Amino acid sequence: MQQNEKQRQRIAMMTFASVYPLYLQKVTRKGRTEAELREVINWLTGYDGKRLDAVIHDKLTFEAFFQQARLHPNAHLITGLICGYRIEEIGDPLIRQVRYLDKLVDELAKGRTMEKILRKA
């Protein structure tokens, strides 16, 4: 995927705090919980509840959010289509990490089991 610099900068400068309520709304509308959403975020990034609250409070950008994250070693197992692009073909590391998170939130909202979402099976 060729991501032009303007699009990349827009995503990089977007705050995690501005997107988190949308993720929460998406999963709760489908019967999932905020605790499950936080579990998914923790698995991918290593952010525990207290640290995630600080990220939201401090309005970290997605770029800072992922720079400070400890990406799970199995994150590369997150594959498939998101927003019309194959995740495994996205060249830019930041965009790929954002799409990893988008994909996990989608899977949670679609009712996949936590075991499958967290790539345990």
Rank of each mutant, 00 (worst) to 15 (best):
D48L: 12
A64G: 11
V98W: 10
I117K: 00
C83S: 15
A12T: 09
R10V: 14
A35W: 06
I95R: 06
Y20C: 05
F65V: 03
P93I: 05
A12R: 04
Q9C: 01
N4G: 11
P73R: 08
E63W: 03
F65M: 04
I78K: 03
R96S: 01
E5D: 14
L52H: 05
E5W: 03
K116M: 11
H57R: 15
I87D: 00
Q68E: 12
Y100Q: 10
A109I: 02
K103E: 11
K30G: 04
A64I: 15
D58N: 06
G84H: 06
K26S: 05
I117A: 00
L94D: 00
F65G: 01
R112L: 03
R32P: 03
R29I: 04
T79I: 15
R38W: 04
F16A: 07
I78C: 05
K50L: 13
V40T: 03
I87G: 00
A75Q: 02
D48V: 11
R119N: 10
L24C: 14
A75W: 02
A75R: 03
G111D: 05
K30C: 05
R10K: 13
Q97R: 14
N4Y: 13
K30V: 02
L60S: 06
S18Y: 03
L24V: 15
N74P: 02
E36G: 05
L108A: 06
K120R: 15
Q9W: 08
N42W: 06
Q2K: 03
Y47G: 01
M13D: 12
F16R: 03
V19D: 11
A109E: 04
E39W: 08
K116H: 11
Q97T: 11
R96L: 01
Q9A: 09
T15E: 14
L94A: 00
W43R: 10
I82M: 03
D58E: 14
Q2F: 10
R99G: 06
L81A: 02
E5M: 08
H72T: 12
V19G: 08
G80S: 11
K50F: 07
V98T: 13
